[in-house]
Amino acid sequence: MEEKRHILGTFDEALRSLRENVLMMASLTERNLNHAIAGLLQRDDELCALSIADDAEIDELEKQIDKDGIDVLLRFQPVASDLRRVVSAIKMNSNLERVADQAVSIGRRARKLNQHPPLQEIELIDPMHRHAVAMLRDSVDAYMREDAALAREIKPRDKALDEMNSNAGRTLTERMGDNPEQLRGYLNLMFIARCLERVGDHATNIAEDAVYAVAAEDIRHMHKKPAIEEQHSPEV
């Protein structure tokens, strides 16, 4: 069903601009993450440096989106679906920025790894990276296309990523015992795996925000006990 336009053209314009900036933020974040991982896999210090340096751009955009979001809240006092979209955009914005921060961490660790002989266990990282990026892309996509079904699929996919991360942790811990002189390198790899696992968490958050924006449902923390859920009940 085609959504009707607002009577206030400027409102439509502001919402569109907010949306476009979020999309831009998502694509810049994904690019940084790709740079950092490529820097690791291809032992390319320049790509690592790029993923670190480009974070400044994302930080700027984050501030801009927050400002725009608050501006829309202030000027148009959105309600219902409009309100949910704006609130979700602001929350996604912050999740995306954290993903970019993970890219920075990965870039830093990769640069350190690059100073030493290559480790064969680097092959653990590539599938995790592809999985995390796919989740991130789908969650942003679900928001943009208002596809609640797609958004709901993200959370189960995070389980697989968590699994990959613990497997990687186990494998790397074993290798540390076998090969103590590479301890530092394995630790860095564990750290990078952990960063990718965090990316999956952020993608999950984004998907949850997308479900809220589309269906006005809060699907977070469904697995936890009610006692814990209580802590998240409203404290306005």
């Binding site: 607002h6 409102f11 959105p78 309600v79 219902a80 679906s81 409009d82 309100l83 949910r84 006005a216």
Partner: peptide
Amino acid sequence: KIFSNPTRRQTEDYITGRF
């Protein structure tokens, strides 16, 4: 509920200021 997630399309269009 009305102002965050109205059930009826007419309500949504009215409160969000759509044509």
